[in-house]
Nucleic acid binder design. Structure first.
Lengths: 177, 177
DNA sequence: CCAAACGTTCAGATCATCCTGAACGTTACA
DNA sequence: TGTAACGTTCAGGATGATCTGAACGTTTGG
């Protein structure tokens, strides 16, 4: 494995962290593990990525919470070793689930609280909060359906990206509403 | 309109900024405009939200770039006035489009660049970048289809959140690839 | 031409987030 | 029990995002 290539991969993955909603250190560690066949120890990682052991430790812990890496033990070794979850789809799926839980759900809860806390007579606020709540409720149903089953969602993505039209997607108005 | 209610709405919308991918000041201004029937001037906004005129100016400019507010001119007035785009769906749609453009597209471009820059022989990196590219390509097709037409996407959301099954959504395994 | 009213910009202050590294806890083994 | 190897934590420093406010442009009217 070409070290320069791996380094470049680590850095581009790292700067893509924003898209996944994880920070740079986590993304870089994740990339390194994705690009390496052998399990790596905390020390290997900290040395290779030139980061502190503390940061590596925290980031590895967090990546395990996200479910995108696993800790393994090598017989005869005292150190902990880590490998990446090898299924990319599964990784994306976990990231999506986690982000819904961390970002979407609290926002929807806050919105509902705001709606309850709005006394009658504030028509404009009530109306707009209400519209938003209705839309986000629909979004939530879609997300929940999608995130319920990792296998099924694979098929769903394929279905939705395939060039076959379905109700609501075409130019021609097909009623509905 | 109840000032305390409006203030609370502004603050909850403001703290929801993260979900929309816009910052706190932008979200607060947007909320204030959503909760007010009359057009407001830059000065009105800066006073009401206790922020600097500079910040208000920059945030208003940015909100206009996102297409979620509009500048209007009142006859006989020198000041600029602002109102919120009144259709919530339209607002969410614009936000979604903008975020795809700002976050997703550059990440996919970076991924493709990384893939090209990976010399043959780096099998693991190539394979994993390739899998990811394939998935994101499918995601992109879905997003493009969804974001192509504001009206159609309304129907699509309804369709997807309705309790009718379609291929790939059920428990039963239907082949596999 | 000048002055007032208004909008915009951006250097530096403020604030939040992330990272480092020393201190500490735990385990294995003599 | 002592000590070496290792992992974890967290106070404080570094970095990056956001906000302020003074300086500067532009427009309007005298």
């Amino acid at each position: 494995m070409d070290a320069a290539t791996r380094a470049q991969f680590v850095e581009s993955w790292g700067s893509m962290g924003g898209l996944w909603g994880i920070n740079r250190s986590m993304a870089r560690i994740h990339a390194l593990l994705l690009a390496t066949r052998e399990p790596l120890s905390l020390e290997d990682i900290a040395r290779e990525l030139e980061m502190s052991r503390g940061n590596a430790s925290m980031s590895l812990k967090e990546l395990r919470n996200w479910g995108v890496i696993r800790r393994v033990h090598l017989t005869g070794e005292r150190k902990d070793y880590y490998i990446a979850e090898d299924d990319i789809w599964s990784m994306l799926f976990r990231i999506a689930s986690e982000r819904k839980k961390r970002e979407f759900d609290p926002a929807l809860a806050a919105l509902r609280k705001a709606l309850e806390a709005t006394p009658p007579g504030n028509d404009l606020v009530r109306q707009r909060l209400g519209e938003l709540e209705e839309i986000l409720r629909a979004v939530e149903r879609v997300l929940d359906r999608f995130l319920k089953d990792e296998e099924a969602s694979r098929g769903m993505l394929k279905f939705l990206s395939a060039p076959i039209p379905y109700p609501g997607s075409g130019k021609g108005k097909k009623s509905r509403g």
